[in-house]
């Protein structure tokens, strides 16, 4: 479904990503784990067009995304939940969701009902300003907004950031549920244990390169991963 070949990205003179290749198949949850500054977020931003690549190839169902505007990429049904939630704080919950359906307003109402069904807490607060929601609710809203675009694949950037352990669990169960409905997920996480437990495969990144990749179960048992990311 998504294929990244030899991707290279830089911020000015600083090379952030050196030749990363990865692949996500239809229906999978793939996670990308690694320490701070490894370049995980940069990869997601480059895939969804928010950042330009220097070199390499990004193929989504065969279409090259590299030269495409972000507003075009989402019409290919590839949604992005940015890091740090990025909701629209002074707009209501409903308006936030409406923005998610920006490129495809067909069945918006039905879709919104579906999102409200999944996140009942958002439904209670549908007319509330998004900035007044709690952190977990905001994250749910960010996910809900991405779902409004009816994506076939979602890029999720650190959905567990800044949430209490209980909420982290909830968010991960939501991701699992989203995936069960047939949406492919590429997940970037610091919380390696949680991420690996819901993924089928994973890539481990270190300073702009992929160092380890493989089956999530195997990685959970891998000594290097355990030592570096699971603190065991």
């Amino acid at each position: 479904m998504l294929k990244v070949n030899n991707l290279a990205v830089s911020y000015g003179a600083i090379k952030a990503i050196h030749g990363v290749s990865l692949e996500v198949h239809d229906g999978e949850v793939v996670s990308l784990i690694g320490a701070n500054g490894a370049g995980k977020t940069t990869i997601l931003r480059t895939i969804s067009g928010l950042k330009r690549a220097d070199d390499g190839e990004i193929l989504f169902n065969g279409t090259d995304l590299r030269k495409m505007e972000p507003s075009k990429i989402i019409t290919l049904k590839l949604a992005h939940v940015p890091e740090g939630r990025h909701i629209f704080p002074q707009m209501t919950v409903e308006e936030n969701l409406e923005m998610g359906a920006f490129t495809d307003k067909k069945d918006m109402e039905a879709n919104m009902e579906e999102v409200f069904e999944r996140f009942s807490r958002l439904k209670e607060r549908r007319r509330q300003l998004a900035g007044t929601l709690s952190g977990g609710e905001q994250q749910m809203l960010a996910v809900g907004r991405a779902l409004m675009a009816k994506p076939s694949m979602i890029l999720m950037d650190e959905p567990s950031m800044g949430l209490s352990p209980l909420l982290v669990k909830e968010i991960f169960s939501i991701i699992k549920e989203v995936n069960r409905k047939g949406i492919t997920v590429l997940l970037v996480e610091q919380n390696a244990k949680m991420a690996l437990s819901i993924s089928s495969r994973a890539y481990v990144m270190e300073t702009g390169k992929i160092t380890i990749s493989g089956n999530a179960g195997e990685l959970l048992r891998d000594d290097r991963v355990r030592k570096a990311y699971l603190g065991q």
């Binding site: 507003s71 940015p82 002074q90 923005m99 998610g100 960010a142």
Partner: peptide, 21 residues
């Protein structure tokens, strides 16, 4: 107007939602 407000609120989220900023 709502679209423009969304851009004001969060530039990154707005472009990620497919708005031509």
């Amino acid at each position: 107007g709502r679209t423009v407000k969304a851009i004001r609120e969060d530039y990154i989220a707005a472009s990620a939602a497919g708005i031509n900023v």
